[in-house]
Design a protein around this nucleic acid. Structure first.
Lengths: 215, 215
DNA sequence: TAGATTGTTAATCGATTAACAATC
DNA sequence: TAGATTGTTAATCGATTAACAATC
């Protein structure tokens, strides 16, 4: 069978949600089909690149017509594992943690943050956007019993590594790291780092260059 | 003069903050010099790659010794435009906006969020981590008078484009976009998008693959 | 049919990694 | 000196873009 899944490139994976979002908007207007040139024009990408990205998910289109939007959405959902909502635990009920808990869009992307964990006694026992804030030391037991596979790290840099260690011991399989620190975890753990400083570096270096040129 | 700045690659720019952070930690222990292999071991990178990234900033090292940490930090700061703190306006005083306003690390990276702007009358006039929340329509006038060049977008997707348009009209030169939407701005505007859904796609697709393999 | 789009193979481009002389 | 590290050039790798036959 054609079960040989060619491992997708990271840039391709990162583009899929944009296609998904655009096609969902199209679907709401009643549209049934969409072509790669159409998506590419909208997102300022190369049509061939869009086609390759979609091919990766197993999608097939019709020449002259394009892809059925419904199939395309289902294809991306399936490929990214968004079909069944995935439960996640969040560690660090601070500002950023609260923001992620309150982000309404995650449900559309199969992510369900079921509880937050914190060390602060003042926060423990409260709720955050309807989900409980629990003591950090209850994370291992609950993660195992609830089969939670995703851990979100929104604690300060100083606590990030120890929280990650705790998650690994708890059977967490994937860590989404929002702290400004690099985390050391076993190779078997999936690690995705949202680095605000990396993004800021691109912004400020370009701005510095632009201001220099115009002065 | 050697004023021909070769435009840096985005991956290189994104790595610089990690070097910066590691070297700052080393400096605190009293260390004076650091080598590329040393940095590379710590951050799990290739030593040659680290050397090329540093060369980009104009740094020169001593064979057998390495780089002076002080010079290295200054070099990165200069290259990324972190020497003089840059003022920024933030639009959208919601959960995420509050989180960014409260992030203590930004000061180290030359970013100073001086005010937030929002449409919600209930929020206008309050403060967020010591900085005022102002009415959105005051942004253009203030941006011009205060020479603010960076705008941070933390409004919901539906409002993001109109906020970006307002920023462009206000003379903002660089937009840091945290909304889940692609923004359309003139080519002259520097645009950096922090896409949580792109990051989540990498995480969930890998997790799905990993769970499939182990089942 | 004519022509736009798909699917796929080839060419290009850019970033990473390897190799190695120069240096202290 | 011996040997680790720098600086730089060459080779490799992977992603993007171009080319083009197949299709409806």
């Amino acid at each position: 069978m054609s079960d040989e899944l060619k491992t997708a490139s990271i840039p391709s994976l990162r583009r899929l949600p944009a296609y998904y979002r655009f096609c969902k908007q199209l679907a709401e207007t009643g549209r049934q089909v969409v072509s790669c040139p159409h998506i590419a024009r909208e997102l300022h990408l190369d049509p061939t690149q869009v086609r390759k990205d979609l091919a990766m998910t197993g999608m097939v289109g019709k020449p002259r017509v394009g892809y059925t939007i419904g199939e395309l959405l289902a294809g991306i959902e399936g490929y990214l594992g968004w079909t069944n909502t995935t439960d996640a635990f969040l560690a660090g009920a601070g500002n950023l943690g609260a923001a992620l808990m309150g982000y309404p869009g995650f449900a559309d992307y199969g992510l369900n943050i079921v509880a937050a964990f914190d060390e602060d006694p003042a926060k423990i026992g409260t709720t955050l956007h309807g989900r409980p804030v629990l003591a950090m030391d209850r994370l291992p037991d609950l993660a195992e019993r609830m089969h939670v596979h995703i851990g979100i790290v929104t604690v300060p840099a100083s606590a990030a590594q120890s929280v990650a260690d705790l998650m690994v011991l708890s059977g967490i399989r994937a860590i989404w790291n929002f702290s400004p620190t690099r985390l050391d975890v076993p190779d078997s753990i999936i690690l995705e780092h949202v680095s605000l400083t990396a993004s800021l570096a691109v912004l400020t270096s370009r701005l510095a260059e632009s201001l220099k040129r115009s002065s």
